[in-house]
Structure formats: structure tokens, C-alpha cells
């Protein structure tokens, strides 16, 4: 099992986490949505895997490149 990180590609704040720990996701699936520049910008899974942990909560401010979730693939 390899771990992979999901990162926010924008500075903003976590608007909505749309997955749960333990949930299986496919590459391209939305894990959570960041609000930035008045837009809803998804954090998507780069690879298929299972959500192992979230490193942020809803309304947490995030910066560009910040790891927001860890997946096991």
C-alpha cells in the first residue's frame, strides 16, 4: 500500500468535505471543495485509493500546495 497526498492547488478555505475517511475514491473524484476567489474549487484524487485521513476541517484556511488529505492506494 502506497500513500499519496492530496493537495490544494489554491489559497482559500475549505468549504465542504464531500468524502469520508475510509471511503474508496477513483482518480479524478472530488475529495473536498476549497472556496477561493469566490469560486468552488475541487481537490481531486490524483490516483484511485482509500481516504486515510483529512488534515483540515471545513472552514480551515489553506495555502497553495498544502496537503489536505492522505490516501492509500
Amino acid at each position: 500500500m502506497a500513500e499519496c497526498e492530496a493537495k490544494s492547488e489554491v489559497t482559500g478555505s475549505v468549504w465542504k468535505i464531500v468524502t469520508e475517511v475510509g471511503q474508496q475514491v477513483e482518480a479524478g473524484d472530488t475529495i473536498m471543495i476549497i472556496e477561493s476567489m469566490k469560486m468552488e474549487i475541487p481537490v481531486v484524487a490524483e490516483e484511485s485509493g482509500t481516504i486515510k485521513a483529512f488534515l483540515v476541517k471545513e472552514e480551515t484556511p489553506v495555502t497553495e500546495g498544502q496537503v489536505v488529505a492522505v490516501l492509500e492506494s
Binding site: E9, V10, S36, M37, M39, I41, P42
Partner: peptide, 8 residues
């Protein structure tokens, strides 16, 4: 592509 960074 708005999918990335809202298109900014």
C-alpha cells in the same frame, strides 16, 4: 480551465 484554480 476553471477546473484548475477557478480559471485564474
Amino acid at each position: 480551465n476553471p477546473l484548475s484554480k477557478g480559471g485564474a
